[in-house]
């Protein structure tokens, strides 16, 4: 039982990061109805930028802020250079294009920063906290991850529900034609969606880096986990992405704890397959079943 609680507690941090990546995927889906398979590639790239900033200044907060801005810009760049030109031609092409971006970003990062896995020094201790006579699988850094994630999720929720920008974005996602007629600048909302997604992913990358290592490919598996969470959540539901992101993190932690970490991708695959089989539209989806 102690094990169970430990594994569960240990899963919250990775769950939080998966939730952020899933959120990024969902925001892109909501704005342009496509899955950005380059999302974790963008996050990897901005995490390298953050690493560079941290190594030269030693300031973690600055590194995080720079990563967010870089993620924002990268999201916009990818949108303008790749997504907007391809969007209406063919869906197959759009999917392939995002993989092209992923490959290019990974190679670019390899060129700039090399392929060696690098460590990212956490701003606070990464050692398990001692409390009530035992060491818990929760570190100060984990708590920081929770706080940053919670702050970001709350911020995004407020943005979407309380601001006119959020309202316009939701309108554009729900019904672009009606939104356009009501004076919403739909195109601008799409860009905003991609930009915020980029920044969200960037935060996820910076948060995961100290407990993982960073290399051009090290986030690949995160893409699978995040996609799983986003799809189970319904691909257009922010709440779903967060819920199932954390859920996926917990499941993976349990699987890794009780069996072996290398089983995690298999379990994620099984979850994904099962979900697609039983409930292809996800648990929190707003739209009905897909047409024939």
């Amino acid at each position: 039982m102690t094990n169970f609680i430990d594994f569960l507690l240990g899963g919250f941090s990775s769950g939080a990061v998966i939730a952020l990546m899933a959120l990024a995927l969902v925001m892109v889906w909501r704005s342009t109805r496509m899955v950005n398979f380059a999302q974790v590639g963008q996050a990897m790239f901005t995490t390298y930028i953050a690493l560079t900033v941290q190594q030269s200044t030693g300031n973690w907060l600055l590194a995080l802020a720079v990563a967010m801005v870089a993620g924002l810009i990268l999201g916009i760049v990818v949108f303008f250079l790749v997504i907007r030109p391809v969007k209406n031609s063919d869906t197959t092409g759009a999917i392939i294009a995002t993989f092209g971006v992923l490959i290019a970003l990974q190679a670019g990062a390899g060129m700039i920063w090399g392929g060696d896995p690098e460590g990212f020094i956490p701003p606070v201790s990464n050692a398990g906290l001692e409390f009530a006579g035992r060491i818990w699988p929760v570190s100060l850094y984990d708590i920081l991850v929770w706080i940053v994630t919670a702050a970001l999720v709350i911020g995004l929720t407020l943005l979407f529900t309380k601001t006119s920008l959020g309202l316009s974005m939701r309108a554009s996602a729900f019904n672009p034609e009606v939104a356009r007629l009501s004076g919403v600048r739909v195109n601008r909302m799409l860009i905003t969606g991609w930009a915020i997604a980029g920044a969200t992913g960037a935060v996820g990358g910076v948060l995961i880096a100290p407990v993982s290592t960073i290399s051009p490919n090290s986030f690949d598996i995160l893409l699978v986990f995040a996609f799983t969470a986003a799809v189970i959540g319904g691909l257009d539901s922010l709440i779903g992405a967060v819920t199932f992101g954390i859920g996926t993190g917990l499941v993976i932690s349990l699987v890794s704890g009780y069996t072996d970490a290398s089983n995690a991708p298999v379990v994620a695959l099984a979850l994904l397959a099962l979900n697609l089989l039983l409930k292809p539209d996800g648990v929190f989806s707003h739209h009905g079943s897909r047409s024939v």
């Binding site: 240990g10 398990g128 570190s139 970490a261």
Partner: peptide
Amino acid sequence: GLESADPVV
């Protein structure tokens, strides 16, 4: 890459 995200395991 992610598996080491778990501080315990």
